[in-house]
């Protein structure tokens, strides 16, 4: 196991300086996600413009993997349609499980840095938690 593969510079930067960290005014949808085993916990809020995620923010506490994943996710998901987000979610899950082809990983930009997580099975859930939470937010009907 290579620690430098897990804790890449770009991950540490996102974790310490997360993007879109905070709350948005009058969100259309929101969701709370937590990992009962470790106590990681995130709240994600979004605004929708038709079928598009027009604004997104997150707050929460977690390890650098989950926080960096959340930060990168906000960058990637903003402006995407719900269907595009589901495609991205699918690729992301494959990436952290080590099942994504290299050429597909290249399209993911910064997110590709999370590929190192696949060598640390217990940390896969950390990387996925914010994404599952956003999925719940997108599907929030309240």
């Amino acid at each position: 196991m290579e620690l430098s593969e897990l804790y890449r510079e770009v991950i540490l930067t996102h974790a310490t300086h997360p993007h879109h960290y905070g709350e948005i005014e009058n969100p259309d949808k929101k969701a709370h996600g937590s990992n009962p085993l470790c106590g990681d916990s995130f709240d994600i809020e979004i605004k929708m413009d038709g079928d598009k995620i027009s604004e997104i923010s997150f707050i929460g506490a977690g390890c650098s993997i989950s926080k960096a994943s959340a930060s990168m996710m906000t960058e990637m998901a903003r402006g995407k349609t719900v269907k595009e987000f589901y495609d991205l979610l699918d690729k992301m899950e494959k990436l952290v499980r080590g099942e994504l082809a290299e050429k597909d990983a290249e399209e993911l930009g910064d997110l590709a840095a999370l590929a190192g997580v696949s060598a640390f099975p217990v940390r896969v859930k950390c990387a996925i938690l914010p994404w599952k939470t956003l999925k719940n937010a997108v599907e929030d009907d309240d």
Binding site: C38, G62, S64, I65, K67, F120, R123
Partner: peptide, 21 residues
């Protein structure tokens, strides 16, 4: 530092500690 990150790095050195709640 989040304790999970500490725990993973300690594990790479053969050190077993508990992290979490």
């Amino acid at each position: 530092a989040h304790p999970h990150d500490i725990g993973t790095i300690l594990d790479s050195e053969g050190i077993a500690v508990r992290t979490g709640h």
